[in-house]
Design a protein around this nucleic acid. Sequence first.
DNA 1: TACCATAAATTGGTTGACCAATTAATAAGA
DNA 2: TCTTATTAATTGGTCAACCAATTTATGGTA
Lengths: 235, 235
Amino acid sequence: MELLNNFSQIEIESPSDKIIRQIKGLISSGQLNPGDKLPSERKLCDKLGVGRTHLRDALKKLEFYGILKTLPQSGTVVAGIGIPALEGLISDMLSLHNHDFKSLVETRIILESQAARLAARNRTVDDLIELDNALLAHQKKVEDDQSAVEEDLLFHVKIAEASHNSVLKSLMLIITPDIMSYFNQHNICSDGKSAKAVEQHQAVVKYIEANDEDGAVRAVTDHLSDIIDYVNGIT
Amino acid sequence: MELLNNFSQIEIESPSDKIIRQIKGLISSGQLNPGDKLPSERKLCDKLGVGRTHLRDALKKLEFYGILKTLPQSGTVVAGIGIPALEGLISDMLSLHNHDFKSLVETRIILESQAARLAARNRTVDDLIELDNALLAHQKKVEDDQSAVEEDLLFHVKIAEASHNSVLKSLMLIITPDIMSYFNQHNICSDGKSAKAVEQHQAVVKYIEANDEDGAVRAVTDHLSDIIDYVNGIT
DNA sequence: TACCATAAATTGGTTGACCAATTAATAAGA
DNA sequence: TCTTATTAATTGGTCAACCAATTTATGGTA
């Protein structure tokens, strides 16, 4: 079955991504500048040789990333962030969700440990109750020998909520699916570690409750050290 | 002109966001479960009482966030991340790009300081050259008394690149437009600080060059301390 | 000439019909 | 009865026409 490893994921570039790449070209060649109003959608389709639906998809993506701003019944303008940064942002958004696992885990640890720090600083009594509930739910599943990845994940989300930093929570949620899909693809289920995980979770909560910022960071780092080791192993 | 301050931004929920909210309702009420195949797009539009275009927009967004997976000519399935996490993710993605400024800045500092740490650890000689170039470009603009926000930003991007962590760079780029739009809206241009900024940038590069991780973190934190103070002031 | 009301053209937004691929159902053959 | 072609229905993907709001052009009036 080792033959399967000789095949790699086929790169399929969606039509809208192709268009984004072309628009990037228009910017590089100076035909499009920050602050400019784009040509009308119809003229652009014509010029790029694609359907309006696809062009619209591309524009929507670019707007989501803050690169464009669409004014209803009026036109679409390029945000004033300057060409070099603009190009960087575009090439970057094309490769989002296609990150290497090491970067993903490294970043996850950064986000989670700092979330724990903020949680230790800002947590309310309500947050502690929520954390305890998540902890108990996780513990119960583990004791019943059921799959607890869901409850595990939810505990980490609760920490992010206790940090009272909405951006940090959002970013964590953004990278979570990527990490999980990698886990599923490579069957890194980390069985048998569940009981240990529960203990480590308890430690994290303890430090957050005591407002011990450095302790919380340390506890989270310890908890995730297994994954760190794994990542460093594959490099 | 103070009258203007009595008006707040009108909340406009896009059609696709409304649909996402409805789909969230379907999940909450148990009509949709992880692993399920969704009803066909046509039946869904009919049930939700919306056009297919809007429904498709919503599905595309949900797919971007890893909540759904669309199989061409076959169907759309709900990712197996479990209902509670799913709900959290959905409500969170609806409020993306609508974050409070304090969380944004707090997170930016976390990302940039840790990026600097990794840069100090992983930087190559090429990275140092790139950093120097960005530094000189910034310096030149400042000496000519021209607007240098673009070059300033670009310098920070170069640090992210020197960290050799693609995820960290992506996340930084994601929140950057939000921060900049807030800066523009509230006219926080921080004039006159440019010369100081150049010096601080030089310090950061020095620590990165010397592989001094803690020093790099400290230098970045110092550099951004002005914004920290501002944020703590408005709380 | 300057101004304003009106009409034509252009804009992004939306809709419904159409396409090819897939799946399910059906009918023919062993 | 089971297997296998063949057909019909359903799927997501795509396209072209249409809509209302906006902008621009036009022509008439002071």
